[in-house]
Amino acid sequence: MSFNLHPVINNGISKGDPSFSGGSLHCHCKASPVTISLTSNISHNHACGCSKCWKPSGAIFSIVGVVPRGSLSVTSGNEKLFVVDSTAVIRRHACKECKVHLFGRIEQEHAFYGLDFVHVELSEEKGWQEVQFAAFVSSTIEQGLVAAEEADLVRGQIKKLGLETYDALSPGLMDAIAVFTAKKNGVLRESKL
C-alpha cells in the first residue's frame, strides 16, 4: 500500500544546494498572486502531519521549513493575506482567494520566535534545503487521513525515503523548546562537558 505523502517527496528526496540563497514563493492564484521573497535558504525542512499546516489536495503531509523573520518579505498581494487562526501560536498567513498558506509567524514569547514557517514547494527555484524528517506522524490518524492500523505503513514509506519519523518534532527542535523553557524557568543547567 502506498500513501500520497506529499508530491514533493512521493518519488524520493531531491538534495538541496547548501549555497542556495533564496527565492520567491507564490500562491496558486493565476491572476495577481501573493508573492513572498526569501533572502535565505530554509532550515529544518520537514514533512509535517499536524492538523494546522497547509497541505496540497490529497496529501497527508505538508512540507514546511523555517527562515529568519528578517529574510521574509511580502512583495505583492499583501492585501490578499489573512491570518487563518489568530489564537494559534503560529499565525499562518494565507491567500483569501486560493487559501494557500504562504507563511506562518510567531508573535508571542516562544522558542521559535524570530523564525517564519514557509512552504518552498510554492517556489519555482530549485536548491531549497531538502526534506530532512517527518514530524507529527500520528496526527494523521486524528485527522482521519490514515487509519490507526496504517500508521506504521506510513512510517515505513517515509523511512524508505531515508527520513526519520517523529510524533513530535526532531530531537534538535525539541531540545530548543526545552532550552527555551528551562531558561524561562531559571533552571537551565550548564554543561560539565
Rank of each mutant, 00 (worst) to 15 (best):
F3Y: 06
I13N: 06
S14A: 14
K15G: 12
D17I: 03
D17S: 05
F20R: 00
F20P: 00
S21P: 03
G22D: 03
G22W: 03
S24M: 14
C27A: 01
C29M: 11
C29P: 04
S32H: 03
P33S: 10
S37W: 08
L38N: 02
I42Q: 05
H44S: 04
H46Y: 05
C50Q: 11
W54T: 04
G58S: 07
R69K: 11
S71A: 15
S73T: 15
V74M: 02
S76V: 06
E79P: 13
K80R: 15
K80T: 14
D85E: 12
S86D: 15
V89Q: 12
I90Y: 01
R91C: 08
C95F: 04
K96G: 09
H101Q: 10
L102G: 00
F103K: 02
I106N: 02
E107V: 09
Y113I: 10
L115R: 00
L115K: 01
V118D: 13
S123A: 15
E124N: 12
E125N: 10
G127W: 07
E130V: 12
F133L: 05
T140N: 13
Q143C: 07
V146N: 00
E150C: 09
D152K: 07
V154G: 01
V154N: 02
G156I: 07
G156W: 09
K160R: 08
E164G: 08
T165C: 10
T165S: 07
D167E: 07
A168N: 11
A168H: 13
L169I: 06
L169A: 07
S170K: 05
L173R: 10
M174N: 08
D175T: 08
A176T: 06
A178E: 11
V179E: 03
T181C: 05
T181Y: 07
K183E: 07
K184Q: 14
R189P: 01
E190R: 00
S191A: 08
